[in-house]
Design a protein around this nucleic acid. Structure first.
Lengths: 245, 245
DNA sequence: CGGATGCTTGATGTATCTCAAGACGTGTGG
DNA sequence: CCACACGTCTTGAGATACATCAAGCATCCG
């Protein structure tokens, strides 16, 4: 089911073509990234831990992962979701130590790219660097929007906003259609991402079902009324910087 | 008082030399950025509004500014503080529309740089690009840490963490000594940055004074026990990525 | 003098957390 | 094949941290 788009690097094509048109040559160059064996991890495994010196760039092919930070006493905050097509840690180029961890939320498959492989593609087709930086800046924009959510939005607004965001991003990589998508993470994960307790997430979801905004069952999320959901979330898609709708 | 370091671009030197050593030639090249008239704004004025197409890079010389996002109903979240030496919106290069606003928290002075001026400096001394990207990545890391703060830290922990962070950053640009620094923003600003109500910020500050962590009066913040403050905040400076302590 | 602006305090309500338990499904080893 | 552990979702009861509303005071400034 989750393997409808299993072709390794296809989600990346779709993602980048949201920012700029990709020629056949661009695609060919990007396909070079697909070298090397594909890696896999179980749900709840770490791909990288805070403090490590990152040496590879990871390109997520299937499954969901997250960036998270934790405190010495165990509190944990998910600060970003990685969906298929996303890069983890382009920052390898500049920073020498990870200030966060990366964990799998579901079983994941990904490529590990060495910086020089990466460099090779960029040298060949410099304008692709622009698309990749674009992706990074969008990631930054998402972080800011999350800060707004956690700081100011109510729990219903917050979850509504997240669902619209995830729907937009998944649609961009061909993993959502008809207001419906695989939603493989737990309520516990939602709580960690939104600064809420597990119990409160559960009750908030119930309220959203009562409001007939969503259906959520069997790891499938269906948005019943997208416009209403956007209105409630005060969703403005400008922060995703998709140039081509 | 706030003008101890008034020499235009000096804070930038200090900031970047936290990441890599700067030669005299580097400094000379950077000084080229100081062309053009210096701009000023009053406290509470906007330097840029969400939705605008940014055309300049701003280099803050004195005063404090912030990045913020707001919701249609007036709720507002400060997502970053800009201190002297900071750049606002290097993203001009890539993104065509601002997804956030930039506002002055105090009277500010800054330079407006056109992308081509900027480009000229980088062309001349390419390794400076690395320092500037570094600065951007640190900004990203700070955003993540704030997400952790707002999502997981209690109000006392949250303010403690922010104060240690500001102290570190101000010290890096020569604007703090002896656990003491100008603190020109209001409790209202603190509330907007930390997702708390104004009243609660006030009471939290009082608690921190009672705990003998800080003194805060007359726009001056004094940290009474830095180690204790760090412990309470669970502060780990890795996210600031200062290479040279 | 009157009007902003910022800080402080008290009273009250409620949104959200914590603790605790049960139901259900799934995988696992005896 | 059953017993059991484990993960996930759900519900209830109770406590409290935080927001909201309201007011007073100080300082500054035109």
């Amino acid at each position: 089911m989750t393997e409808l788009v299993s072709a390794g690097i296809e989600p990346l094509f779709r993602l980048l073509s949201r920012y700029m048109p990709l020629t056949a040559e661009d695609r060919a160059a990007l396909t070079m990234l697909e070298v090397g064996p594909i890696c896999t991890k179980e749900a709840r495994a770490d791909l990288a831990r805070e403090g490590e010196n990152p040496s590879v760039i990871r390109l997520l092919v299937s499954g969901w992962a997250c960036r998270y930070k934790d405190l010495p006493d165990g509190r944990r905050q998910i600060v970003a979701f990685f969906l298929p097509g996303d890069f983890c840690d382009l920052s390898v180029y500049i920073l020498s130590e990870l200030d966060h961890s990366i964990g799998a939320l579901t079983p994941v498959r990904y490529f590990e790219l060495l910086p020089h492989q990466f460099q090779q593609v960029i040298d060949e087709r410099p304008h692709l660097l622009r698309a990749l930086l674009w992706h990074e800046m969008v990631a930054s924009g998402i972080q800011r929007e999350w800060l707004l959510s956690i700081g100011q939005r109510t729990p219903v607004e917050r979850l509504s906003h997240l669902f619209v965001e995830l729907y937009s991003r998944l649609k961009a990589v061909g993993q959502a259609q008809d207001h419906c998508f695989d939603f493989p993470i737990t309520q516990h994960n939602l709580a960690e991402a939104n600064g809420l307790s597990l119990v409160h997430v559960n009750r908030t979801l119930q309220e959203m079902r009562r409001m007939e905004l969503i259906e959520l069952a069997d790891r499938q999320l269906r948005i019943l009324d997208l416009e209403k959901l956007k209105r409630i979330a005060m969703f403005n898609n400008n922060y995703l910087h998709f140039n081509r709708e």
